[in-house]
Design a protein around this nucleic acid. Sequence first.
DNA 1: TTGACACATTCCCATATGGGTATATGTTTC
DNA 2: GAAACATATACCCATATGGGAATGTGTCAA
Lengths: 113, 113
Amino acid sequence: MARAATTTDAFNAVAEPRRRQILDLLVGGERAVNDLVDLLDLAQPLVSKHLRVLREVGLVDVRDSGRHRVYRLNAAPLKPIHDWVKSYERSWEERFRALDDVLEELKAEENDR
Amino acid sequence: MARAATTTDAFNAVAEPRRRQILDLLVGGERAVNDLVDLLDLAQPLVSKHLRVLREVGLVDVRDSGRHRVYRLNAAPLKPIHDWVKSYERSWEERFRALDDVLEELKAEENDR
DNA sequence: TTGACACATTCCCATATGGGTATATGTTTC
DNA sequence: GAAACATATACCCATATGGGAATGTGTCAA
């Protein structure tokens, strides 16, 4: 088998930085495709393709408005990601604290000399 | 260009469910490769390959212990993911509240009839 | 030293990617 | 109806994937 499709779930969809950028733009409110094209400085077909992936995993909804298609954020599918990483929060905080301790020790040694 | 390498960053590394499973096991403490092989019920070469990816993005550290290689979690690279999704938390909560409101309305209508 | 064990690496394959370019579809405006 | 605009889709390409099978490398035990 090859790598899982980008449309498999939010984890895969969001691994692509361009798609994260798109979502970041949509937090500010709805946007038509051309808006996004200008803001992202990316070829229109690429934007459309990324939007399709986001649509397939439910991260955006579309609405027709004349000859525009307006995309809107739906953050719900991000919650599983949040829940998963959140369980590691304590873990990295411990490590950062441990690092701080080491730095403190080094500083103390420095002052002792 | 093709899809970004899995070793590009934590986002890509963690998009693969097997690798999330491995991290989930390592939260409980250090593990040797064969331990993981048994727990995951996955071929040993595959486990080694996944561990390599995790190592390359810094999500695990290795230590030699006799003829075993002991892997240990380092959650720090997950923090950027956490920070990114966290900024959407309000967004999905709003949407869930809106959904609740709709359900309440439906229930109220139900009672009125 | 030889064999058993633990692990990593290599090779093969099918697959889908993201970008580019060209074109199809649908909607306004004239 | 024709032209202009907005968007989606189709096609081509290079690339790396995850799995499988086989093999390499290093360590311990007898």
